[in-house]
Design a protein around this nucleic acid. Sequence first.
DNA 1: ATTCAAACATGATAAAATTCATTTTTTCCC
DNA 2: GGGAAAAAATGAATTTTATCATGTTTGAAT
Lengths: 229, 229
Amino acid sequence: MPEKSHRHVTCENCLSRQNSLFKSFCDEDVEGLDSKKSCSYYKKNQPLFLEGSTPRGVFCLNSGKVKIFARGEEGKEQIIHLSAGGEIVGFRAMFSGEPYKVSATTLEECNICFISKSDFLDMVDTNVTLRNGIMKELSTELADRATFITNMAQKSVRERLAFSLILLQDVYKDEMINLTREDLANFVGTATETLIRLLKDFKEEKLIQTHARKIEILSKEGLLKVSGA
Amino acid sequence: MPEKSHRHVTCENCLSRQNSLFKSFCDEDVEGLDSKKSCSYYKKNQPLFLEGSTPRGVFCLNSGKVKIFARGEEGKEQIIHLSAGGEIVGFRAMFSGEPYKVSATTLEECNICFISKSDFLDMVDTNVTLRNGIMKELSTELADRATFITNMAQKSVRERLAFSLILLQDVYKDEMINLTREDLANFVGTATETLIRLLKDFKEEKLIQTHARKIEILSKEGLLKVSGA
DNA sequence: ATTCAAACATGATAAAATTCATTTTTTCCC
DNA sequence: GGGAAAAAATGAATTTTATCATGTTTGAAT
């Protein structure tokens, strides 16, 4: 549980770094990284950046979860991705030379470090391993989004929800999925009411169980079957 | 109109190169590129690569159009992107270290050059401008796909079709849009019958006109309005 | 503990889109 | 240029999903 105040994290000991693009850094690089980053505490529902604004650097998630979303014409959110500890958020915008096309907001209390654009780009220029990691990451995400688009286009809401729950369990690891019904609907790409009705169906089918807002998966196999994957 | 036989293109004179990631190459680089590439003629509906296969290099479109698509559970195609002259196809897979997640097939007769993976990666390693261009391209496409996902999730088929026609006109430039109804449906993400009915509506609303398969846009403004963009 | 707003839930209705069956038109290839 | 196969078009019936209205629960702040 993060403290409700600024907490300084040293990159050397940062557990999140082990899962991040910085994992292969040598001691010297880690030291450099540590001297350049600044740590902040974010409370729930606090934005990291907003669609349309100018990117100034990248965010390194130490703890907590963040939603990445775009807004449609009527302002409705479409959640594109959920980030958890270790992920570096906002690095795509470092290369595009354009304003953010998506927004990022915390879903819970978070400890997040910030690295300025110039420091980050310096690292990318000089560190081949980091650069290759980033190129690989960009490519992988591009492929993931192709799958996302295909699912959106071809699967029913019921199928997408089943699939989404499985994906979300990976994000939440050993915790239960803890999202508002609206956020969940905005991830699945449906109306909140439709989502609630389908959750009810899944409960009746003993695929999931809810504890107020939290969702516990009872049968991953069953969900996989429903998802048609 | 491409010749129905192998045609050797020299990179130096290649008009497509002017729009490509290779546009900033100096004379020496162009010479190197020219010596490494091999040209081929592709007929209509010929695959460049298939989902699941191992990437061996990149494809440089000299002329003609190519569809990039994924297949859903039931084998239905979802077209993710249409590529035209100047585009380099398949370079994402050079960095991911994984089999192709999408397939690429020609939509018409094409002249396409091939550059092997090792030659391409050598260029990326040594040419900073090319590398930065690629990182920018990857980032931009990632943002585009976020928009694509949002449109898929929140817009009606009618809105998506209007939007798609505008996008397609950019791909087809001064030509008329020339896709089978099925391909168009697989791009918009709908059933072929639904697509055909909507095209009929658009015809009645004088937004488009059809010449057998070919689609002529009569009112881009009208389509924009319908698309809700 | 109490309160109040936000989130959750449910029902009824309407709209959007798919599916399946069938006919007409176009394409292309010999 | 003719003929077969593929593609396009249309109709009817059904399913899926959204929308709107409204009631209920939950949880955070006092």
